[in-house]
Design a protein around this nucleic acid. Structure first.
Lengths: 233, 233, 233, 233
DNA sequence: TATGAATGAGCGTTCATTCAT
DNA sequence: CATGAATGAACGCTCATTCAT
């Protein structure tokens, strides 16, 4: 369907112009959704402006170019991910329990924010060209790695965790499992014959991952079966 | 979606038909590279035909449409992945050693075929719309799951592996780790400050994953540090 | 929908090639329908070959070009119209009755052959470019004019018809009424709010035209109302 | 079918808006000529934009699509036809003379506006698909029918016209004769061996039609020969 | 005689963007 | 500060036709 300019809104409606910031935010929010759904190339300027109930011209007015807008989108989702991780409050000192909460958070975040995944995939398809340009993005360093490092240290101090562990690797392992299932949920579902992201399957996967991670980090993993003594005390 | 011309049975036809088949293959190969590099929307018909040293029109002659071509590309990479997995020959009966070889194969395959990853990401961005349509793709069931199931059974029979293991979950875990590192190598590298897919980091990651998987499946995992007794007997 | 070449029929099916003449006829028939439905420009070679269950190449093999095919289509419908008119057998010597039969034939023919109308419109849109080229078409001179001339002469001899009549004009008047209603049936129907080519409306129109023509040619037309004394003696 | 930009109210805008309206009109005018000359399929967007001394893109800016432009063209010629009929001023109260003037107007209008005919033929080839969609076109009801109804009533009141007449049928008869001669002027001319739309032949045809219509409606038509007492008083 | 392979040119349409106030 | 008007280039696709056997 081709674009179709409507008669000017000022003439049709009595609406006052939004504040500049509001318009900008509206576009940024729409762009996040559109880029997440259609990728960079597929997320046309017109799709975005229509979703934002604005006009193409405003995107150039506020963001300079499509690429400038995309960069801000990427920065924004990183910022939000960072904020979410920063607010990850562990309500226990128990390292095992803490680790379970981290896993729960990571897998839950990806599941709740699939747009984060498609946007990251899009940026990786573009070979990270924008993340490199972004000065702001460079500031964000996933707090989760630090959180895991703390947890591991506590567990090592009390002897329940192995000494030879790198927080980054544990972090990557957890993220891998959360990311992959969501990123590839359509093709995986087609091949496995069931929705891998159904609530049941997502829960089963999280249980498996939790068990797996604990077996990796614990000095004395449970011999078999249920390893989640912490969940069923 | 248009139907598309099938390649003529080589036997039935002479020299020109062979060249027709060659033209078709040339386009398919070029399309695989172009779609992998630029995604579906970004992989323009012209880019593909130029890469194939052909002309746009030929794509429609042989594949009916851009979408028809993309479907064949997806089917083709699945078929190749399937063939590669089917040829995965385990040169040992030892279940631990076998599992290590599977991990080595999976992580190695993704590392050697990054185009497989971007194409799958592209298909998932399109919400698996083509894989669902493809009757051919439905035939492919990852042989690797079966291989892992066999290995697990052998290990369980001899008592070295836990009894409560699902091959699919072990498979997904391995694939997750191999997929994620490659899929997100650009953004990960930007944040971690080093190429995560460098030979050294890739090897270190594979070692970690191998250790992790063994700790998960073994009834008696090594107490700490080096868990690869099987590699350094 | 793009074209999609099927595997060669000889391979798929056991069918023997049709005789050359049969293939030619099949294409000509299909072309008549396609050109009538879509016009000259809209009647693509592919549409025709598909409708004929043949391939594009055959059109060039038998007709040389799209234009050559169209010329034969035009010649063919003229020939058929000519034949139909030639077979117009008047089963009476009564000039009034004869004229009614001619009107019935002409309006009936257009109604039964709407493709004749769209093809003529198409040719007129092209400014009669093909009818001029066609040597064969030049031979056809509508026999109906001659038939009407005969009828008029008989009526004039017996004094029931006016002396100052030109057969061509009477012919054109009759044809106009039959042609226009069918040619413009879609726009007319839209404006008049009912299908002008419904059986009832077509019959009412024919009655009106018959009455009108008789009033024009008769020296003593009926004073009012029913003028069809010949129909209800 | 896409919506399309409406021309801005001239009052609201300044010089550029005026030029915008001018651009739109230029395109609409060019499109009318091109569609009339080449039909819908043959009237390519490029032909139109070139004729309008504009560029393809502007057609989509103002009309959304080729189809949207065609719809406006159709609406426009109907509107103009309607306006012309509405301005048909009869400078006499004599019903016979009035009817002659209507015939003169209708045949004259078609003769002066052959593009009206080809556009209507084109729309009928498309089976009236646009006229049905057009809400605007539905408003136009040929005023000529009403004019003829008035004339007939006057003639009937004074007894010179037959009582059993339907205005619509008289209207359709007149329109048929005017339309057919122009619509089929190329093929008719080829067969009859002379230009049917030459000034002389057009005049002779109009005279014949006038005589014919009068004979149809008059209670006492002239016995023979010249029936146009009103023209040669 | 008959057909599979190939093609340059053009199609309607959408792209991201700039001009001009 | 904000926007209506305009645009060159590219998009996926179809066109009528010819090549080569």
């Amino acid at each position: 369907m081709p674009s179709a300019r409507k008669p000017p809104a000022t003439a049709r409606l009595g609406v006052r112009a939004l504040s500049a910031q509001a318009t900008r935010d509206k576009i940024l929010k729409a762009a996040t959704q559109v880029f997440a759904k259609h990728g960079y190339q597929g997320g046309s300027v017109e799709k975005i402006s229509r979703a934002a109930k604005s006009v193409d011209r405003m995107i150039y007015y506020y963001f300079g170019s499509k690429e400038g807008l995309f960069i801000e989108v990427i920065e924004d989702i990183y910022r939000r991910m960072n904020e979410a991780e920063a607010q990850l409050k562990l309500n226990t000192q128990d390292p095992v329990e803490s680790l379970c909460q981290v896993i729960d958070f990571v897998l839950g975040y990806y599941r709740a924010h699939p747009e984060f995944i498609t946007l990251l995939n899009t940026e990786n398809l573009l070979q990270g060209r924008h993340i490199v340009q972004s000065t702001r993005a460079a500031q964000y360093s996933s707090p989760a790695v630090g959180v895991i490092a703390d947890i591991l240290r506590r567990g090592q101090d009390s002897g329940v965790f192995r000494a030879d562990l790198q927080a980054r690797q544990v972090y990557l392992l957890i993220v891998s499992t959360g990311y992959f299932l969501m990123s590839n949920r359509y093709t995986l579902s087609a091949f496995l014959g069931e929705r891998v992201d159904s609530p049941e399957n997502a829960q089963a996967w999280k249980d498996f991952v939790t068990d797996a991670v604990l077996r990796i980090v614990l000095t004395n993993p449970p011999p078999t079966g249920d390893s989640h003594g912490h969940r069923h005390p």
